[in-house]
Computed example of a mutant assay.
Amino acid sequence: MVLGKRILVVEDEEHIRKFIKINLEREGFIVKEAGTGEKGIDIVKTEKIDVVVLDIMLPGIDGFEVCKILRQEFPTMGIIMLTAKSQDIDKIMGLEFGTDDYMVKPFNPIELVLRVKSLLRRMDSPKEENQNIIVDAPFKIDKYSRKFHKQDEEVELTPTEYSIIKLFIENPGKAFSRDEILNIVWGYDFVGDSKIVDVNVRRLRSKIEDDPSNPYYIETIWGIGYRWRDK
């Protein structure tokens, strides 16, 4: 899975950037570096990048704006945000940015490697030869192309959003706890706040629900988690 995967580290503090690069290269990743958001965007536009590790506090345009630009132009790219403890997690994972995961500084480099691998697993799930198409009107998932449609219009999803919606639609009526979703989508090696599930669900609702403030398809099971409505 790691062989040939290209990671871009966008971090203005050189010693942190080099430290991240060394640990990723030890695992066999090809690592590119950028000290500014502008340079990071240029690299993504000229080279194939699978995952971007993106610091929020950057000179020039900040990580939020970089994430927004990358999501618009490369919706299926993996993005992991690096943040200080003082940052609001809701803002980091906010609807307008669309990052897949986040890590709070200071962090264990081994954990970052695990997060990158977990994200790549979500992005590289095997293409399935049988039953490629799942239809749950008005939605359709093409598991081979990893595309999601509502009423024949493609809905752009991040790799994490795609994994969650696929889990829901393949299991209509089943209640999933936040921990179950974390284990299935992020992996058992995930260490972090379960709020990441809630924020991704909010983003999904903003994209697929007719009225996100009064969701019909993704039901909240209070005190537990979420369920896809079984029609």
Results as ranks from 00 to 15, higher is better:
12 D>T: 06
136 D>R: 12
176 F>P: 00
170 E>V: 05
60 G>V: 02
206 S>D: 14
54 L>M: 05
177 S>H: 04
196 I>S: 03
154 E>T: 13
111 E>V: 15
51 V>T: 05
196 I>Q: 01
30 I>E: 10
102 Y>V: 14
38 E>L: 03
48 K>C: 01
48 K>W: 01
43 I>E: 08
35 G>R: 08
150 K>M: 10
138 P>R: 05
87 Q>V: 08
114 L>T: 09
213 S>N: 09
163 S>F: 00
210 D>N: 14
132 N>E: 14
71 R>A: 08
66 V>R: 08
99 T>R: 02
147 K>N: 14
200 N>V: 11
49 I>T: 13
74 F>G: 06
34 A>T: 08
211 D>V: 09
182 L>W: 03
217 Y>V: 12
128 E>G: 10
207 K>Y: 07
155 V>N: 04
223 G>H: 06
19 F>Y: 13
35 G>C: 03
139 F>N: 09
54 L>G: 03
122 R>S: 14
186 W>L: 14
13 E>G: 00
195 K>R: 15
62 D>T: 02
187 G>R: 09
15 H>G: 01
3 L>F: 10
40 G>W: 09
153 E>I: 08
12 D>V: 06
83 T>C: 11
52 V>N: 09
8 L>F: 07
46 T>Q: 14
195 K>I: 11
51 V>R: 04
85 K>V: 13
215 P>R: 13
207 K>G: 07
161 E>I: 13
53 V>A: 03
38 E>H: 02
84 A>K: 12
114 L>P: 00
81 M>T: 00
82 L>H: 05
221 I>A: 09
186 W>H: 15
217 Y>L: 10
138 P>V: 02
27 E>T: 00
162 Y>G: 06
179 D>F: 02
193 D>H: 11
75 P>Y: 12
217 Y>C: 08
105 K>F: 04
5 K>I: 02
13 E>R: 02
21 K>I: 00
41 I>L: 13
182 L>C: 14
153 E>R: 10
120 L>T: 06
96 E>F: 11
182 L>V: 15
230 D>A: 12
87 Q>H: 15
207 K>E: 05
69 I>Q: 14
132 N>F: 00
223 G>C: 07
21 K>Q: 13
187 G>N: 11
214 N>W: 11
157 L>A: 07
140 K>W: 00
213 S>C: 00
49 I>V: 15
132 N>G: 03
230 D>N: 15
109 P>N: 05
207 K>M: 06
